[in-house]
Design a protein around this nucleic acid. Structure first.
Lengths: 269, 269
DNA sequence: ACTTATTGTGCGATTATCGTACAAATGTTC
DNA sequence: GAACATTTGTACGATAATCGCACAATAAGT
């Protein structure tokens, strides 16, 4: 406990850490309860929360009770709902980092001039996390919002971000993650991926063609700050049926690169 | 710098509720620690967290330790930072409610055709909370993001939402909140505000002229669902120096009303 | 090198939290 | 509407999670 170690993936064992007097189990459990609301369009009842989190019903109940007393959760006829007050937690993130706010206008510009969704993401715990987004009108098969996470190895944003990692960390990445094929096109071997990442680093962009989902192509470029350090990645996602690979490279890439460059000049600090 | 964020003083009574065996103090404290990061562009050290939350240093430390073990907080040279993983908490909200996603394209459209920032908000605990937003390029004096909260009585969004409240709840609202004048134009008496709210209800929109901040005008309309129930409010905020009250009413209002109407037809459930 | 500020450690005291088992609602089926 | 099934609320003793102090260690500033 001398140093706060790198964040670990949360599994159940982490929630019941006996023997670490500094780890507040109740806090961890309560937060897991919040997360248990993911992907639930309807109300969630106590038992469901208890199941999803692996917490005993009594604990789940107390967590829900506490969260509801604090105004983060509301109880309705058909179960518990998250209250918008939960947004105040992420608001603290946005109010303490300016990157998403600065990027927004450039994302909007890319979206307007290409007609396609444009997103900004960073790497967090070996996953790609969207931190800003300008979504095109058309309904995409994948609907991703701010805070959404995807595996890095099979997304354009992820590969750009991985390409910016120091070699040691990249090795560590491949040592810890497990890869699976989302489609028949997904590259999963370490050799292939490392080659792709090397190429990405060289050419300054990457295209992923239906490796995450059939019908989805994605182009990404790095976003650097004033000192040239990669601080994020920006991408455009298109439907494969409408935009060819060469169109992506010839028409979309220049727009994306220009946006990234404009943003760069704003990232002084 | 004009700060509208909730006062830093945290209600201790809520955090140290002795005698309620169902209230998990540790969970409440941990969440307050997350909130203590609001409006901090730089790293925050432990002592600062302890001060802001009113928690003892030992408790603040354990909360930070736990959050950092879970990956929500990172420790850097100059203090603690929120990690983007915190966004996964709000992601659960967006993944469980479709209103913000549906509204986005309409907000974007209003922004594009008026050139001004457009936002969607709902009422939560007597405050206006932004749940979606399309920000105009120009830098506004007030930079508000998703999850930001403002008092309802002095904002256009708030007055539209208050106008939709059942009379009893409106009375309750006025009974509980305290009003203060942000500018010399801010209306604060219950009589004035009730009259304004009545008028808002009648005419289906409201304009607030520099009552929150000098130089800021705002126009808001209700957003109804398919059954006619008000589920949110949509607004456009402009700089007083550039857009007159009559321009707002003649040019912006129709755009906003049309957007609200289009959104309404999508809100079937 | 000295002072000051901030952070980490150990430990006994205490009470917050746990889980079980049971009671009370609530909803469902026939 | 009775009988059953499912979900939620209550009570309480046991226990370990959490507390805060006081001190040690480190970092920062002069």
């Amino acid at each position: 406990m001398t140093e706060f170690s790198a964040p670990k993936a949360i599994d159940k064992s982490n929630l019941f850490r006996k023997g670490d007097p500094d780890f507040m189990t109740s806090l961890a459990r309560g937060i897991e309860v919040i997360r248990a609301f993911s992907d639930t369009k309807t109300g969630v009842n106590m038992s469901a929360i208890s199941e999803r989190t692996g917490l005993s019903r009594a604990v789940a109940r107390r967590c829900l009770y506490t969260l509801s007393e604090m105004g983060y959760v509301r109880r309705d006829l058909d179960g518990y709902y998250l209250e918008p007050k939960i947004l105040s937690l992420s608001q603290t993130y946005f109010s303490s980092t300016s990157l998403p706010a600065l990027a927004q206008e450039h994302l909007d510009h890319v979206k307007e001039s290409t007609g396609e969704s444009c997103s900004l993401a960073i790497l967090d715990e070996h996953e790609t996390v969207y931190i800003a987004r300008s979504a095109a009108r058309r309904i995409m098969a994948v609907s991703l919002g701010i805070g959404s996470r995807l595996p890095a190895y099979c997304t354009s944003l992820g590969r750009v971000l991985l390409a910016a990692l120091p070699p040691a960390e990249l090795d560590n990445y491949f040592g810890t993650i497990k890869r699976k094929a989302f489609t028949e096109r997904t590259r999963t071997t370490q050799r292939d991926l490392k080659a792709i990442i090397d190429k990405t680093r060289e050419q300054g962009f990457t295209i992923v063609d239906q490796e995450l989902e059939i019908g989805l192509r994605s182009l990404a470029v790095p976003v650097r700050n004033h000192n040239g350090v990669v601080v994020a990645a920006m991408n455009v996602g298109v439907q494969a049926s409408r935009v060819s690979l060469s169109d992506l490279k010839r028409q979309t890439l220049p727009v994306l690169l220009s946006a990234s460059e404009k943003l760069r000049s704003q990232l002084i600090c």
